[in-house]
Design a protein around this nucleic acid. Structure first.
Lengths: 244, 244
DNA sequence: ATAATATGACTGACCAGTCAGTCATCGTCA
DNA sequence: TGACGATGACTGACTGGTCAGTCATATTAT
């Protein structure tokens, strides 16, 4: 402990990008999501509109970068470039990198929840309700960029307790409660024999989570038909379907 | 004679300490794993031993840091400090940060596989074999730091295709194949009715994966009895157990 | 006009990786 | 056995490049 000074442990967030031996810059290029690159049919003259558009562009760009690189390795210069604004502009919309990240996750999760929390209407067998739910989930999340958001939460959650807490509160606990109610109903109706299942609603959604992870890690090696898998899973829970 | 330079640096310039808005330094401290901090009962005089010890210390330290912060945000200065060596020493054992990370994962995964690949002996019902397997998995992985390694792979995999490939090749594909064989056997024996299950061995292990994720993200909010959950899962697959 | 916005050059903290120098071990010879 | 030079593991100050965040200046909507 000579005179390293240490400066009070400031903002922690260090990317890697060294540029020493292996350069490999090309491999670092972002996938370039086929995002709507529509050339703004609306010039959007007034302030409010432009502001909203700019914000949306920033959010979109930041999402792509954070998903592709994770929090620490994402450069705000890149976010700005991708969004088509100057770096300073980012700071007109977000306090700092961390706030940007957290707010991003929040605003991404909300429509995700709305999508999912929509129809609690149970007409007909519970299995059908669960199956419809799963279909929506797989169509809207597993097969889209939203799945990457889930993976992002898994990745960065431990480093952002705020986000993990938010996600647990707004998504997980509610989802588990809803699922538990559904299971209970199915048990009451005699659709599900295994009564213990109500204690572990996680079991119902586990294959969906695994599908998300599988897609982003192993799809290249072995594509996974998430929907087919989920149907087999439902057969396990509800008993094999008589009619195909 | 290296640094005769010395640099006057009267250091009048206030370090300034950027100190923008929120500091939040404390949240950044590493959990400080309760690792064996035993004060070296073995002085280990000879070179080879010391070298091995040093390497082990570095691996241990690096593991802690990478798990806690992820690849990009981990500082090699911290790894060195934690391992009790100088930074330069790290480079005697690893080519660079990236190699260190990849090699770390590899060496961590190997014993993990050995642990799991051990007893393919099927004496008695397949369910018992799977249950024993799950017990080992939960005891050795979900409830230990090894689970964090799995999470680390999920987190950094997309940024380290090398690692994702390695993991798929050495763990996932082998594990899936073994599980598939087991399912097939159980189907043949009539222990499993749902024949489609053989197409999706992922379904069998999904709850274990979810348990790992749950532990690291939500254990604080709602602890999960992974083993109890898995037993219910097995009941779904094999049919409810008659005897408790 | 002029206030609200946007810009991007700039600052300084930060950190991966280097390398000249140190010193604990080891081999060897008296 | 004991002393001494050779070896190479270890150290940590230093370099060079990076990037979050700032702010004086420029642009634009009203």
């Amino acid at each position: 402990m000579a005179m390293t000074k240490r400066i009070e442990e400031t903002n922690r967030s260090r990317p890697a990008k060294r540029r020493t031996t292996t350069i490999r810059a090309a491999a670092t290029r972002i996938p370039k999501v086929a995002s709507a690159k529509l050339p703004e049919p609306k010039p959007a003259a007034n302030r409010a509109e432009k502001s909203a558009e700019r914000r949306a562009a920033i959010v979109e760009a930041a999402m792509d970068e954070f998903i592709a690189r994770g929090f620490a390795a994402t450069r705000l210069d890149d976010v700005a470039k991708r969004a088509g604004v100057a770096k300073g502009t980012l700071y007109l919309y977000f306090k700092d990198k961390e706030s940007m990240f957290e707010e991003l996750i929040r605003t991404a999760v909300v429509p995700l929840v709305n999508r999912m929390a929509a129809p609690p209407t149970i007409t007909g067998p519970v299995r059908d309700a669960v199956e419809r739910f799963a279909e929506t989930f797989i169509r809207e999340i597993v097969s889209t960029r939203r799945g990457d958001i889930v993976r992002l939460i898994v990745s960065e959650g431990p480093r952002f307790p705020t986000i993990a807490d938010f996600y647990f509160r707004e998504v997980v606990s509610k989802g588990m409660a809803a699922m538990q109610a559904l299971i209970q109903l199915a048990i009451t109706r005699g659709e599900i024999r295994q009564r213990q299942l109500a204690q572990f609603p996680q079991l119902v959604v586990a294959p969906a989570i695994v599908a998300v992870i599988w897609q982003s890690l192993f799809a290249r090696h072995a594509p996974l038909d998430a929907l087919a898998m989920f149907k087999v899973h439902l057969d396990l829970i509800f008993g094999e379907r008589s009619k195909p």
